[in-house]
Amino acid sequence: LKGVVVAGGVLAGAVAVASFFLRNKRR
């Protein structure tokens, strides 16, 4: 169960970083 929580956190972080980079590329 702990691994699932960690994986979810990593996935959420990756999505946040990806969206951040996409926003920067638009400018």
Rank of each mutant, 00 (worst) to 15 (best):
Arg27Cys: 15
Phe20Gly: 03
Ala12Ser: 07
Phe20Tyr: 04
Ala18Pro: 00
Gly9Leu: 08
Leu11Gly: 01
Lys2Asn: 09
Val6Thr: 10
Lys2Glu: 01
Val5Cys: 11
Arg26Asp: 07
Leu22Thr: 02
Phe21Gly: 01
Val5Gln: 06
Gly13Trp: 12
Arg27Ala: 13
Val4Lys: 12
Leu11Phe: 09
Ser19Phe: 03
Gly9Ile: 06
Phe21Val: 10
Leu11Glu: 00
Gly8Phe: 06
Val10Arg: 06
Gly13Cys: 07
Gly3Glu: 07
Val4Ala: 14
Gly9Gln: 07
Arg27Ser: 13
Arg26Ala: 13
Val5Tyr: 00
Leu22Glu: 01
Leu1Asn: 05
Phe21Leu: 11
Val6Pro: 01
Phe21Ala: 04
Lys2Phe: 07
Ala16Thr: 07
Gly13Leu: 11
Val17Asp: 00
Ser19Cys: 13
Arg23Lys: 06
Ala12His: 04
Leu1Gly: 06
Lys2Cys: 07
Val6Tyr: 10
Arg27Glu: 08
Val10Glu: 01
Val6Asp: 05
Asn24Gly: 10
Val5Ile: 11
Gly8Ser: 12
Val6Gly: 03
Arg27Gly: 14
Arg23Pro: 01
Val4Pro: 02
Val17Ser: 01
Gly8Lys: 01
Asn24Gln: 11
Val17Ala: 12
Ala12Ile: 12
Leu22Met: 08
Phe21Trp: 13
Asn24Arg: 13
Phe20Ala: 07
Arg23Gln: 06
Val15Thr: 04
Asn24Ser: 12
Val10Asn: 04
Ala16His: 07
Val6Glu: 03
Ala18Trp: 13
Ser19Ile: 09
Phe20His: 09
Val5Lys: 06
Val17His: 01
Ala16Glu: 02
Gly9His: 02
Ala14Gly: 04
Leu1Ser: 09
Gly8Ile: 14
Val10Thr: 05
Ala7Cys: 11
Val15Pro: 00
Val10Ile: 11
Lys2Gln: 08
Ser19Asp: 05
Arg27Asn: 14
Gly3Ile: 09
Leu22Asn: 02
Ala16Asp: 00
Leu11Ala: 02
Arg26His: 14
Gly13Asp: 02
Ala16Gly: 05
Val4Ile: 05
Phe20Glu: 02
Gly9Glu: 05
Arg26Trp: 11
Arg26Val: 09
